[in-house]
């Protein structure tokens, strides 16, 4: 018999008749969803968003398209909708970062960022650019940059055509590149 790794789709299908099996989907993806929400909204809202993502996903499990092996686009799409509810908190956080380079609660960022000083130097400018993006463009950009989805997957996650996702990504990246370009000019 051929042996293969079990796919998300199979786990979700299994959960149709054995609901508890959905815990396996949680175990695989909770940390990833939490990390994504953490970057966009900070820790405390991320706790809520990550938990609610899986409750909503569970309720919608019978509508899952089991021809899609990887559930990440689906889960990140649910999370994106929840994150959108906190639009103002998100923008506030980026503005705070743009001012200070640190997130509002005085967390110990030194460890995380120390490995990449260049990137840290860019952070203030990037945060300012993120604050200036439309929510729709930011969703696609961050699903690609932070959730590491392809633009096509990001489109599927957000329920928009692949072409639309690509053009939003293109627009957002130009803003980001502009912000980074300016920072290089200033340094030289």
């Amino acid at each position: 018999m051929p042996v293969q790794a079990v796919e998300d789709a199979a786990l979700i299908r299994r959960s149709w008749r054995e609901p508890e099996q959905f815990a396996a989907v949680f175990d695989r993806h909770y940390d990833g969803i939490h990390a994504y929400a953490d970057r966009r909204l900070g820790r405390s809202l991320a706790d809520d968003v990550a938990a609610e993502t899986f409750l909503i996903a569970f309720d919608k499990r019978e509508q899952y398209d089991v021809s899609r092996a990887d559930a990440r686009p689906w889960l990140f799409g649910i999370a994106s909708n929840l994150i959108a509810r906190h639009h103002r908190a998100e923008v506030r956080q980026y503005r705070a970062l743009a001012r200070t380079g640190a997130e509002e609660p005085g967390e110990d960022h030194a460890d995380r960022v120390a490995s990449s000083l260049d990137a840290a130097a860019h952070r203030k400018r990037l945060a300012a650019a993120l604050a200036g993006l439309s929510g729709a463009d930011r969703d696609v950009l961050l699903l690609v940059a932070w959730a590491e989805l392809t633009s096509e997957e990001a489109g599927r996650a957000l329920g928009i055509p692949a072409g639309t996702a690509r053009s939003r990504l293109h627009r957002a990246r130009k803003r980001i590149q502009a912000a980074l370009g300016r920072s290089d000019d200033e340094r030289s």
Partner: peptide, 16 residues
């Protein structure tokens, strides 16, 4: 630019 964006925020702490 996408890698820079990824690196700039680093990997958040895992959930409590």
């Amino acid at each position: 630019d996408l890698e820079t964006l990824r690196e700039a925020w680093g990997q958040p702490e895992p959930p409590v």
